[in-house]
């Protein structure tokens, strides 16, 4: 498998749903490509298996702090071993993929700074715009079939 994209977030907590919203848009945009997209509420250990099969992984999540709609990107390396599986982070999931299946892909994390994490099922306008920017970047990167999705 080539690229795995995992969008994380709670769509009932306002801007926290940014990652999942981006993943749902990407699943539509990249349908039929050799890209697997997972839209989820939170990371779970079972995701270590498709992660280990990928050559490149991109996580998308909301972030608290920073200007609303600000997009941040950083590379990830496998680290850590949490005591519990209720709050897995991408680095730990990469670590699990490495320990269980002998491979962790090259990985990046996109975060989109949120503003309103209250009980609502819509994104604020600036966060929604940022979601579309991230989606456009990743669609472009995947269509160029380059290794890095930084695009």
């Amino acid at each position: 498998m080539g690229t795995l994209i995992i969008g994380i977030g709670n769509t009932l907590r306002g801007d926290d749903g940014a990652g999942q919203e981006a993943a749902l848009l990407l699943a539509d945009a990249l349908a039929g490509d050799t890209v697997e997209v997972i839209a989820c509420h939170q990371l779970t250990l079972e995701m270590s298996e498709p992660l280990a099969r990928a050559t490149t992984a991109v996580f998308i999540d909301a972030e608290y702090g920073g200007a609303a709609g600000e997009i941040r990107l950083r590379s990830l390396v496998p680290t850590g071993a949490d005591l519990f599986t209720h709050d897995l982070i991408p680095e730990t999931l990469l670590s699990a993929a490495l320990a269980l299946y002998g491979h962790a892909p090259e990985a990046w994390l996109y975060t989109i700074c949120g503003e309103d994490f209250g009980y609502k099922d819509a994104l604020t306008a600036s966060v929604d715009a940022a979601v579309h920017q991230v989606v456009a970047r990743l669609v472009a990167a995947c269509s160029r079939a380059i290794d890095s999705p930084i695009g």
Binding site: E46, S48, E49, D82, L83, T92, S95, A96, A99, L100
Partner: peptide, 29 residues
């Protein structure tokens, strides 16, 4: 040691067992 007595500690000792657990959970899901 409680720092090791968890699913990640188990991966180091018996990854095959954990892979089996992951696969069984995946199957149900």
């Amino acid at each position: 040691d409680p720092a090791q007595r968890n699913i990640f500690g188990l991966m180091n000792v018996n990854p095959e067992l954990v892979r089996g657990g992951v696969k069984l959970r995946q199957t149900g899901q």
